[in-house]
Design a protein around this nucleic acid. Structure first.
Lengths: 211, 211
DNA sequence: ATTAAATGGTAATACTCGTTACCATTTATT
DNA sequence: AATAAATGGTAACGAGTATTACCATTTAAT
């Protein structure tokens, strides 16, 4: 029996089968939180490792580096954006129902912050920005385009390109207020505010502001 | 006479009176270009000094540091946003005239990039984001609010809060396409594209999309 | 003329950070 | 049982960087 100096004071060694996924999730959760708080450039790998109670080597084994773990986070985040718009009967009701869900999701602080980081680092990670938009807002936009195309065939709405209508409605939902939110100049709206916000935006979008 | 080793090979010493402002402008111009290309965190003070043919000491003397020179740039940039909306007779013509100028300005690559950097670093510089919005989009928004208030008094448009109308119209101008532009996913639109873009957005804003 | 102010150039200070290496340890695999 | 794989902990490497200091120099101010 050889005398060994203890180098692993808590727990180390190859993880058991159950702990493997758990450790990966804990790592991703902690990293996401830290990226949202500190941004990309200001967050150090050492901080991630310490907060996630994980060794530096483990991060490099699983994600290859800082850009790797950030990319994994963006992917995981943009996968939450898959929702279909349920037909609520009238066009206005359908848009309202869809708009509330959409606006609530994109105005949550973590989503806003994630967008901000992506915008700031878009020059460094062009592929990430592309994938984020395609997997996230892109799918929402595609659903809206299809919806407007249908309502155009019934003759209920004007005959302008449905892509334009979709872009315009998403933009009407976001509102200039969302830009201020993105710059950190307004507090996060609660559900009641969002409801009123969407109702007004949808009505204006459908009827215009002329009397 | 003492033997002196030449430490200033090109030119040094206290600047003449005319050169003072010239040197400061050259420094700001070079720094702006570099910030737009490399972002905030990736740009080193040494690079700025070298590109502007200026000593490090000079930058610290004039601006105090990296944050100082960045702040000066943001101020100088947001001062370009002061324009009034000329009354073109009808509301639609006035909005179109205003919208073209606004959209053209905010879609130029350097402005888009500046916004991106500010959004990414908004957590580090909360005051800068506030001042940028107040001096830039905030004044535009105030003019629009006043315009809508006037047209409401003539009874031409519906009686919804003019702040909401202004936010909504700015948002309609920006369009979802602007979000893609901000993420670097679309090329900069030229003047012809912007014209068509504004005409459609204004018409939809005024009349709605119902038949 | 003398002093103060501002500059250029170089170097040094005092960090921070991404990444890799090493060793003992624990579990999976064969 | 023996080997491979993955981990924790610590340290080291190497590169980069914001900031300051020092000296000679040029111009402004008094």
């Amino acid at each position: 029996m050889k005398m060994t100096t203890l180098k692993c004071s808590v727990k180390c060694g190859r993880p058991a089968k159950g702990e493997e996924q758990q450790s990966r999730d804990r790592l991703l959760d902690a990293a996401l939180q830290l990226f949202l708080e500190q941004g990309y450039g200001n967050l150090s790998m050492e901080t991630i490792a310490k907060e996630a109670r994980v060794s530096l080597r483990t991060i490099y084994n699983q994600f290859g580096g800082k850009a790797g773990i950030f990319g994994a986070l963006v992917k995981r985040c943009s996968d939450q954006f898959a929702d279909s718009l349920a037909d609520q009967g009238s066009l206005e009701d359908t848009l309202n129902s869809f708009g509330k869900k959409f606006l609530f999701r994109v105005s949550r602080p973590d989503v806003v912050r994630m967008r901000a980081i992506l915008i700031g680092e878009a020059m460094r990670f062009p592929d990430l920005a592309t994938e984020f938009y395609q997997q996230g807002p892109g799918r929402t936009r595609a659903s809206l385009i299809e919806l407007f195309r249908q309502y155009q065939q019934t003759g209920e709405i004007k005959n302008v390109p449905p892509e334009f209508l979709a872009d315009q409605y998403i933009s009407a939902l976001r509102n200039e207020r969302f830009q201020r939110l993105q710059l950190g100049l307004e507090p996060t709206p609660d559900e009641a505010e969002i409801d009123a916000w969407v109702l007004q935006a949808t009505r204006l979008f459908l009827q215009g502001c002329l009397k």
